[in-house]
Design a protein around this nucleic acid. Structure first.
Lengths: 363, 363
DNA sequence: CAAACCTTCTTGACCGGTACAGAAGACGTG
DNA sequence: CACGTCTTCTGTACCGGTCAAGAAGGTTTG
């Protein structure tokens, strides 16, 4: 266990490669090699050097210095628009990050979480050292993302409008949303509510889907409209101002607490759908007899609530793995100086029918 | 929005402070000040420098170089024994990390997640640049933690045996466990099962509580035994080999699927208790009529399951905030060179009685 | 009017490593 | 024995910044 180090002598002269070199009587470079390129020197000498290092309390090359000299830090960033709290609260986000962490582990890369905040003294996207970054579901007007680009960092976009030069990983939100829409149409629903989440923006979103921010939100909405437009059904929408449960409930109430309420509600996410189920229960509306509810994501929540949620599955773990793999590949390519056309991964979605949806008005 | 950068010219000569200095016709230092110490130069000159920087596509001082020169990185680490997947799966861990992230946000510090793995080429705890680290619920035999110490990094121990020189944040696990134990004693239970979780180790843990790894596990077990020892009750224990739900179920079955099964089970965590509830239901054992179950943590899960869980609450968000605050304070102190006695925070716990516990054998 | 002071900018050293070319010795070879 | 080749180690030039002390000029002050 821990010994050889002590506290209270914080002011002790720092031990560097040179300290050890002097002690052993070799050049600084040889000591460096003893740590970083073991095959570049004889075994006995290396032993002596390592022993001296141990004795002097030297742990290994200073990471910051090494980062500067090698141009490599051993860490990659993940950038969110949302506050980081979200990264640990939302089940979809945690699933995603967990998969990334798992995929990254064998590479030895560490994961640094960044917000896209750019007020304040330190702007992480500009001031934190990293080898590359995942841009996850970010507001694309964000200055933080712009910093990342200008730093010429290897980037991968996830749940983000693809850009030609930047590798991206997305799920086929639009097809998934279409499948959900067809599902309720097939069940006979003709008065349909749509419930999005987002951080801000006007409400008449059906007039201009482009105004919805967030790539996924936009694509899912477009998918719904792909089907509903031609079918000529009556569509009503609400949009809550935030991603919390409270916001979802607020939106749900807007949609359900009225005489001409929809017979089916499509939700941007399972988390939102959960809010709808709660509100429906409170209003005494039976699901699925009087109301069909369809979520999105196939969040673990979807099978925990009653009735279980009909939803559109995306393989969030696969998304995380793909994102991590693409990023490491992009970093490797940048390091090697080779350039290849950016890869754009599109993962499939799949409608999962459970208990929360059913035919309209059954006797 | 993004413009001014392009891809494909990755090999373009790097723009550094010197490039800009030459362009504007000032010294490198002045350019540095333009970015890092705006009040050290005249406003018009600063404007010219910033304009030139913009034009040349210079984003700001290189983080790695700055880190070396200033001795500050702008990131702090969190070290786990468990795989990082755990950090995103376990509700207690995510709550903790979320609170840390929130507390850290205004300071501008980024959060780097590290595993304590020390095989492989890169050993994060040794090779990643950071200003300090939180050691969270780590196996104390871990070499990673030893590296952190030898690097003289400011550290804070969380859910870890306190060490004199190292600031720590803990919850009063032992008192909490005692309260839980008293609770079931008061309800008349005399045949009691204990269910721990852990990563490895022998099973006869009642003979030697010290062998239980994990500070919290150990303290909770000790708290239970504090009460049960003197009361002379019959105690049976099981210990699952891991932290997943499957392991919890396995341990629960060991305890419940036998004729002399306990009338009450105390669990190391709510996650474990959840497994017990499942197994009890499968075996047709009614909770709380035939079996009382007590969890620990007051995980959100505790109020979602039926019956709701009697448990010992710890304020996980407060723990996260305290940990982050203590760490930033410790870092500040280290930077200032001042030394003060290490602070040891102990947060309270509180028994929360809900539906899963009741008197033994009621008619 | 000279001494004391700002403000603004420059100079040189240093942070702690790594890359790369080359020197010195050991070894096989024709 | 001269020569090419390895292996092992050294010297020097970076990596891209920041720090601390000082110089140059303009202002206040006694």
């Amino acid at each position: 266990m821990s010994q050889g180090w002590r506290y209270g002598d914080a002011m002790a002269a720092r031990v560097t490669l040179q300290t050890i070199a002097d002690r052993v009587g070799v050049s600084r470079m040889t000591v460096s090699n003893a740590f970083s390129k073991p095959d570049q020197l004889s075994v006995p000498l290396r032993q002596r050097i390592l022993a001296a290092a141990q004795e002097l309390g030297y742990v290994g090359p200073d990471p910051a210095a090494r980062a500067l000299a090698k141009g490599t830090t051993g860490a990659v960033g993940v950038v969110f628009t949302h506050s980081l709290r979200f990264a640990f609260t939302d089940l979809v986000a945690t699933g995603f990050l967990g998969a990334i962490a798992e995929e990254l582990a064998p590479t030895g890369l560490s994961l640094t979480l960044l917000t896209s905040s750019d007020d304040g003294d330190i702007v992480p996207a500009r001031d934190v050292a990293m080898d590359g970054a995942l841009v996850y579901s970010c507001d694309w007007t964000s200055r933080a993302v712009d910093f990342l680009h200008r730093r010429r960092l290897p980037l991968v976009y996830v749940d983000q409008d693809p850009v030609d030069d930047i590798p991206s990983v997305n799920v086929d939100d639009r097809s998934g949303a279409r499948a959900a829409a067809r599902h309720v149409l097939d069940l006979g629903h003709r008065r349909i509510g749509l419930l999005l989440s987002g951080t801000h923006g006007p409400y008449g979103l059906l007039d201009d889907p482009g105004v919805v921010d967030g790539h996924s939100s936009r694509q899912r909405l477009l998918g719904w409209l792909d089907e509903f437009g031609p079918a000529g059904v009556e569509v009503m929408s609400a949009r809550q101002d935030g991603t919390g449960l409270e916001q979802a409930r607020w939106g749900a109430r807007l949609l359900l607490d009225r005489p001409d309420r929809p017979t089916a509600v499509l939700c941007f996410s399972d988390a939102v759908a959960y809010g709808v189920l709660q509100v429906a229960a409170e209003l005494g509306i039976e699901v699925p007899r009087q109301l069909s509810v369809v979520g999105f994501d196939d969040n673990p929540l979807a099978t925990q609530v009653r009735p279980t949620l009909t939803t559109v599955r995306q393989d969030i773990a696969a998304k995380g793995r793909a994102a991590a793999a693409t990023l490491t590949a992009t970093i490797a390519r940048a390091k090697a100086g080779t350039s290849a056309p950016a890869e754009h991964v599109l993962l499939p979605t799949e409608l999962v029918v459970r208990e929360s949806s059913g035919p309209v008005n059954p006797q």
